[in-house]
Design a protein around this nucleic acid. Structure first.
Lengths: 385, 385
DNA sequence: TTGAAAGCGCTACCAT
DNA sequence: ATGGTAGCGCTTTCAA
């Protein structure tokens, strides 16, 4: 709320006073000093190119080309129902080019009553390279269709507040990563605000929204199964200290427990072991490792796995002989340590597939909420298990 | 352009016909069937709560509360110049709550003549964890001020096209990562469209825009200087095969050459060595390594450095005795290999600092373009050099 | 083939 | 203290 609007308002009034179109006397005798002019362009350029101030509008183009705003709109949107003479077309296009006209997206979508915006609230938890890259790809894929993908970086807002903020944009679809606390109320609000599809991306579904599930229990189950197959029964799970990863860790732990229960291996156990992402923490953990009596450990991701494995080796704990170590995400770097790190490879659907899904959901609204399982986990055995 | 607008238009006309306000006979005798209704809400809810279709507008709130749209606006915006009775306030707030009213951002900024949107076009080159995290932080920091940060994922567009697409949003500021081919023309267009600050983020400046420089020559200079100090003179630079990293590589190479020239070490040389990001490529390179005759190599980032170092060790090349290896980015994982990887630590200003800068530039437009050097490089010697 | 005009949802000026 | 209302920039129907 600076002083700009007022400046512009004043300028606009002045401009308007002399804005009687050159040809054809104006039917309105005098514009009758408008009570207010909020803001906006209306450049004073008469016909020649001048220093424009404020964004040029279609009115400016029309004036320069000597046609009406309607004609400008027809030409610039290639309207097929109206046939415009080639000469006019060219004049309009030249005028638009000359003054650097760019249509005003907000005005356009206000008039249209809908937008082609797909809103992706920025995730507010630190997501690894895997999901980060995936979201980027998805964004690209959606952009390739004719949606305008917008990642909204609203911070601090959660739950209903966040939903309200998103709804202000009147997006045609919302793709919300977990961690914003979007609930059924928010989903309903978004839908009422014109969203034709609301999707959540994360471990659990939300009433009324479509769900792209990332069920990390699968990862835990996969890891535990692998370790059991390798003959390990006293299993550990490294739980990262980073904020925002708790949910994933819990899911993984649950998956491991399921696998243990299903396996029927008698006496198999699972111990959760916290670990910060520093060398010192790893060394400390390694120093008391033998006391834990674990013969197999899964580490949430390759980075933690490598951190631990190195610390164990420095402590003289043989890998995999004494303790098998397994990571997840199949990072390239996991192959550089010795022994090479066994890992759970997580694969997600292609971004194109998902973009197509979003497109379909937008175009067939009103259907039942759909649930899609995104995540596939496969064990990759290398040398550390 | 689906069939929706027409449906809504029809519904709207119907709604309007019966929308005469309950109290106080309407001064206008008959609404005189409007020639057109583009789209939009206008729910048919008379007074009681009903199934609303389309987004509720401030008109709906006003009707339900029995006040005018103006009053609604005053209450919802906490306008201080107008004093509204507490009773009215509460009625309006309750009504807004009841029907789930959310203001229409596009309409608001259209009226206001400006937006608080900071547009960050999504980078279209693969950027590492360092810059990715940095951009994320910056987005958060800007969001914490009162800007609405929006990352725009327009694909395929470059140069003037991209600038035009961005300008449609009428952002108050644009923060464009390198790789979009933004040129002086685009900058001017954005400014004319209302952007009060245009910033580029990357290795080179653009006429008319402020520049946040990431001068990777510093990284090269730092690495080369370090290697020279360690007594190496036949230097190599690993050049990644990934697309989009060429510019960075060139800058690093240039920086290394500068360092070589400045050092005055006679006979010091620099060889650029391409390497793909796979174990196989690294093994192949390692097998012909002795033929290259290099005694020190800098690897663009820690990942490539680790890849190479492992391959060299597998080939029997002693590190650092026969060849010193240095990486960049100071990844945690670099400390897990043996020998521990020496690295160039790259530090960037805090996101808060930069957010404050953007804020200042927005609030003092018209100033000369500023150039800020973001990058600081420091050598961290570990055991591989 | 072109123009006049209405109105999307919102805010702010002016009058009551 | 509250309401009427103009108009931001745009598209589109209807009339000429």
């Amino acid at each position: 709320m600076a002083r700009i609007p007022n400046e512009q308002a004043a300028r606009r009034q002045a401009a308007r006073r002399q804005a009687a179109r050159p040809p054809a006397g104006p039917p309105v005798p005098a514009p009758a000093g408008p009570p207010d002019g909020p803001a906006g362009g209306a450049a004073a350029a008469a016909t020649g190119s001048a220093v424009l101030t404020g964004a040029p509008t279609s009115t400016d183009v029309a004036r320069l080309a000597g046609v009406s705003r309607a004609t400008v709109s027809y030409v610039l949107n290639n309207t097929t129902t109206m046939r415009i003479s080639e000469a006019t077309r060219q004049r309009v296009l030249a005028a638009a080019e000359e003054i650097g006209y760019v249509p005003h997206a907000a005005a356009r979508s206000l008039r249209a009553g809908h937008s082609r915006m797909v809103l992706m609230p920025a995730p507010n938890v630190p997501l690894g390279a895997l999901y980060g890259g995936f979201l980027g790809d998805l964004q690209q894929a959606l952009g390739r269709s004719e949606y305008t993908v917008v990642q909204y970086g609203g911070v601090g807002r959660t739950g209903d507040d966040a939903a309200r903020a998103w709804a202000e944009f009147r997006p045609v679809a919302v793709l919300a990563p977990a961690g914003h606390g979007l609930g059924p109320w928010g989903v309903a609000l978004l839908k009422r605000s014109g969203a034709r599809a609301v999707l959540t991306l994360g471990p659990e579904r939300v009433d009324g929204a479509h769900a792209l599930l990332t069920d990390h229990r699968k990862v835990g189950r996969c890891a535990a199964t692998h370790l059991l197959e390798r003959g390990r029964t006293a299993l550990g799970l490294i739980v990262p200290g980073e904020r925002g990863l708790e949910a994933v860790s819990h899911a993984i732990a649950a998956g491991m427990r399921h696998a243990l229960a299903d396996s029927g291996v008698p006496g198999a156990t699972l111990t959760e072991v916290p670990l910060d992402r520093t060398e010192e923490a790893a060394a400390r953990l390694a120093s008391r490792w033998r006391g834990l009596g674990l013969d197999g450990v899964f580490a949430h991701n390759d980075e933690y796995a490598m951190l631990l494995m190195r610390a164990l080796q420095d402590e003289g704990v043989a890998v995999p002989a004494q303790t098998a170590v397994m990571g997840a995400d199949d990072l390239l770097l996991g192959r550089l340590l010795r022994p090479r790190l066994s890992t759970v490879r997580i694969s997600l659907p292609s971004a194109q597939t998902l973009a197509a899904l979003v497109d379909r959901l937008v175009n067939t609204p009103g259907g039942q909420p759909e649930v899609h399982d995104l995540l596939r986990a496969t064990a990759v055995r290398r040398e550390s298990t």
